[in-house]
Simulated scan of single mutants.
Amino acid sequence: MSGKSKDRSLHLLAGGLLLAMAALFAVAWYYQIAPLKAFAEAALVGGIADWFAVTALFRRPLGLPIPHTALIPANQKRLGKALGEFVRDNFLAPDLVVARLRQGSPAGWIADTLAQPAIAHTLARRLARVMEDADTRAAVLGLIRPGPPLAQALLLVMRQHGHQRVFDRVLDAVQNALVRDNAFVLAKVSDGSGRWVPGWIDRKLADKLTAALAAGLDDLRRADHPWRLGFTGWLERLAERLRDDPALAAKLAAMRDTMLADLLSEPHLTPPLAEAIVTWGRRLAADPGGRARLDRRLIHLTERVLVPSRREIGDFIAEVVERWDSATLVAKLEGQVGRDLQYIRVNGTLVGGLVGLALYGLSHLLG
């Protein structure tokens, strides 16, 4: 049974019990059964009083303009302010927040959470949906602007020798591949030699060729190597064209729009993004030093941003509650506590009846 069905059942139970007490009172009055009449009468009073009290919290009983009813809608602004102050003073107190962060490890929780594939996939899918928003996509595309902005970015990277680091990383990748396995070179040598050439000669030639390639790669690491200088010159000419050639900028912009429109779609973006999230979470989980650094940054961020802004956060909560439609606010609160309120009505009816019966018995005992 769903929550709404249970709430409706309890509401019917409370109302039905009140009607049953009214019927019981009528029977007791008709047959003059004094104890039963005392019980039913008191139960009716208790049930009606609790029905009035419960209803008066959210709306006017029977729609009558009775003072001090519909308390929650009438005091919505004050409730919002009180809720904001409560969160501000009890959840965002500086000592409490920082102590709680120091006690645990937010970075550890983040790592364990993001390392779970299901959570990472859900997070990636939501991020991908954000990227599919037209305004968000336009903002992302605006960050990649061919033409003078891209030329300036390229020249900035070159001034910081970023292109040289890229060149060296490419050399490292090729050299590591040759060191790990020269089967590719051996296959090419074998294909080029005749059938009559023994295999050991092919292997010897492949080893020498591999060694020569490795030496050539080492030579490319010289700052004055012609190839390295040629790479730098090509990037400089590219930056110049990006700055001065509108046709090239327009062509690159069209390529950007075509490529990113496909890459930023949810089906294409979600899998690699989820894999990246899981990988980052697992690396963080296996890196105690990284977690410690992230914990320090989170605590520092909390001390510098969250805690000093707690008054604004409290005011924001108050404003949100105040802006809620009264019917929405009542529905939210009734959905949370409605079941307990119906139990109050049931208990009020039964307890009222028992108290009435007890008073009846006590009055007879005292003569």
Rank of each mutant, 00 (worst) to 15 (best):
D172G: 12
A139N: 06
D191Q: 11
S190Y: 00
V197H: 04
G142S: 07
D218T: 05
L205D: 03
A211Y: 05
G233D: 01
Q152M: 01
Q164K: 15
G142H: 07
D168T: 08
A214P: 01
L217M: 10
I144M: 08
F231D: 11
D168K: 04
I144E: 02
Q164H: 15
L178D: 03
G142F: 02
T210R: 08
R222T: 05
D218K: 08
R159G: 01
Q160Y: 12
W227E: 09
L205Y: 00
R180Y: 09
L229E: 05
P198F: 00
R169N: 13
A187M: 04
A173I: 10
R180S: 11
G199R: 03
Q175L: 13
V179Y: 07
K204C: 00
V170Y: 05
G162V: 04
A211I: 01
R222K: 08
R180K: 14
L156E: 11
F231G: 13
T232W: 14
L229G: 05
F184C: 00
G142Q: 09
G192Y: 10
R221Q: 02
G194K: 13
K204R: 11
L156R: 14
R203W: 14
A173P: 08
H163A: 07
V166Q: 14
L213D: 05
W196E: 02
L150C: 12
A215W: 13
F231L: 14
L178I: 09
V179Q: 10
A214K: 11
F231V: 10
A183N: 15
R159F: 00
S193A: 11
R203Q: 11
L150S: 12
A214F: 07
A212R: 10
L150P: 11
V197A: 03
I201T: 13
L235Y: 14
L229M: 04
A151Y: 12
L235T: 11
T232I: 15
D219E: 00
P198Y: 05
A206F: 00
L186K: 15
R169D: 12
A173S: 10
L155P: 10
D202I: 02
N176L: 07
G147Q: 04
Q160T: 03
G230K: 05
P148C: 06
L235A: 07
D218Y: 02
L143C: 00
G230P: 04
L235V: 06
A215V: 02
L229K: 01
L141C: 08
Q160I: 04
G233A: 05
G142R: 09
V140A: 06
G147A: 02
G192V: 03
F184N: 08
A206R: 05
V157E: 03
P146S: 10
D181R: 01
L238R: 11
G162E: 10
L143N: 01
T210E: 01
H225Y: 05
I144Y: 05
V189Y: 06
R169C: 07
R159K: 04
A173M: 10
R228C: 00
D181Q: 06
V140I: 13
H225C: 00
P226E: 02
V166T: 14
